[in-house]
Design a protein around this nucleic acid. Structure first.
Lengths: 333, 333
DNA sequence: GTCAATAGTGCAATCGATTACGCAAAGCTT
DNA sequence: AAGCTTTGCGTAATCGATTGCACTATTGAC
């Protein structure tokens, strides 16, 4: 094994002390121009690269950011991880990933490990709107932390997410324009902030004077919830004109199961999704869905995070990114 | 900030030296039983936890494993990451994740970073069957490395993946049983090992005496390839009895786009997938697909990797896990 | 009761980089 | 030319844990 080059070796080869070599490379203190050139040349020739571990020990900074998502298997989160990773790499940070599987205990354990490992910052999609707060507050007091997509309290730490009110509004407006006079909401329960917000947005925005609103169906954000909702709708007998789903997975699960019951979308029923995952745009019918600008959300979140990492003590910020509506086949007959 | 407890503080509180404290906690050298008890009690009370960075500097081991996947957005890889992460956590390792986006340069850059960061091991899905080998060999000489799902040469480093020959065989046999007399293969190009292996398996296994084999369509493993293949098939005019797709995403993209052309699966055409992603089992029609035992693959791979981390110098191993066939609606009329 | 073996512990080096401090040489002021 | 400032660089401490070596105290053998 070609034994990694140390700063000491560079210093020796350049005929200076390690201290000078370090300064020459960082350029942070006064060093003669000639010395800088010499040291840099030698370092390049020897292929010197700083040992991130030694630096981390000394500096207390690892240039690693930890991220916790509830389910990496959900394509929306996969895309989010991808976007976050991209932003971090641009800024020279690595991504330490953990999956909480939606479990509070696991989430809190991972947070502790991140603390021990001295990550420079944490990006988290809190698993529980209320009960995640404790662990977040504790860790957030020590390490810059940004909540993304979901929140456990916007006063707790910086937050970036989509504006669910706008999103639901777009979906509602659209199906009403397409003539839907009876609606059912299929979404997630009150455990997550997105679950609450989307339901509230629907509940407050829908105009009960002009449309009939059926009993909502609420589970989680998965395909399975969509499928279960389909069964329930069919069992109820009369189908609504449209279903507003709180995620693309729910919508896809719903459409798929409805088809098994002989119910075709959009022929018998309109459906809208939420997220704008790639997936929703290739299957048939393509989904009319509220598109989250994932890249923008990730960029904002990492922006917040890195400004904190750089020492900003600005008051807690909360950013809501506006989604757009993408009209597909699921509401077009 | 509650200032992390150091070993020095534990030692002071217990009235021993740091050396003894360290030995008492690790239990690796002879220390009086009473001292061990005392130190452990004090450590627990103070909430001491070793600083992984200091330990890493001293030991040269980080208890971090790096993983590189081509596209985290592909649900199959998302599930693979999930399974790998699970196995690693069980063994007390953290996961540093990077996405190569299928680019060789990016892949090699991430490998270098992993080396610098002194990860204890690397799990990689090589992006290129041939051209990934160089970087893999270089890094693999220094750090335990296991290839998973795809390979850049099974003699290069340990490898664990599905047995594509068996998988394709299952799919072929199944559609023939269902009466298909003409087939088209839709898969990935020769850049990846899976692309090559699945095509070869198809090509060698299919019995050209009893079935007509149409011109294959090859792209990558994405939805888009499936959609493009659908366009091509329709453009050709006569549809085959069945399409054997090399991934679930391809199959789903294909089915979706075919439907837009008015071609229904399985009514007009049978389709089989490959991977057994959760997704493929909820949409309608559910997919007949070759199910990869992802957990088993991940467990084997991490088993190989950790035995190397522990110092094994056994000859390079290669493990093929047998897939099974899950029959769904896409081949059932 | 002497000597060797061994258990238990502390001192100090080590991993590799960063940086406070101090010293010598050079430059500047009056 | 004496005094002061500035420049450039080396010495050594530091981050926190692990461990080789040395030293003392205890135990056992004969």
């Amino acid at each position: 094994m070609p034994h990694a080059v140390t700063l000491q070796e560079v210093a020796d080869a350049a005929g200076v002390s390690v201290a000078t070599a370090s300064r020459a490379l960082s350029g942070k203190n006064r060093v003669a121009a000639a010395t800088i050139a010499k040291v840099r040349a030698v370092a390049a020739e020897l292929g010197y690269r700083v040992d991130p571990i030694a630096r981390a020990l000394r500096e207390g900074s690892t240039r690693i950011v930890g991220m916790i998502v509830p389910v990496i298997g959900n394509p929306y989160f996969a895309q989010l991880v991808d976007a976050v990773e991209h932003e971090l790499h641009r800024a020279g940070f690595e991504l330490l990933l953990a999956d909480s599987h939606g479990e509070l205990a696991e989430e809190s354990r991972r947070l502790t490990v991140f603390g021990d490992r001295k990550v420079d910052g944490i990006v988290i999609v809190p698993s529980d709107r209320q009960r995640s707060a404790g662990a977040l507050r504790a860790v957030g007091a020590e390490i810059p932390l940004v909540q993304i997509d979901r929140s456990a309290g916007v006063s707790l730490a910086d937050y970036v997410g989509v504006d669910n009110e706008i999103g639901l509004g777009l979906a509602l407006e659209h199906v009403q324009e397409r003539g839907a006079r009876s609606l059912v909401y299929v979404g997630a329960d009150d455990v997550t902030s997105s679950g609450v917000e989307r339901w509230n947005a629907f509940d407050r925005t829908v105009d009960r004077e002009t449309v009939a609103v059926g009993e909502p169906f609420r589970g989680d954000f998965s395909l399975a919830t969509g499928a279960a909702a389909a069964d329930a709708l069919v069992a109820r007998g009369r189908l609504p004109d449209a279903v507003i789903a709180a995620s693309d997975l729910i919508a896809l699960g719903l459409i798929g199961r409805l088809r098994e019951h002989g119910v075709e979308v959009p022929r018998d029923l309109l459906v809208t999704g939420f997220d704008g995952t790639e997936l929703s745009q290739v299957l048939a019918p393509t989904l009319t869905t509220v598109v989250q600008p994932i890249e923008a959300v990730a960029a904002d979140a990492i922006g917040f995070l890195l400004s904190r990492v750089a020492g900003s003590t600005a008051p807690v910020r909360s950013s809501r990114v506006a989604p757009t509506l993408l009209v597909g086949g699921s509401t077009t007959r």
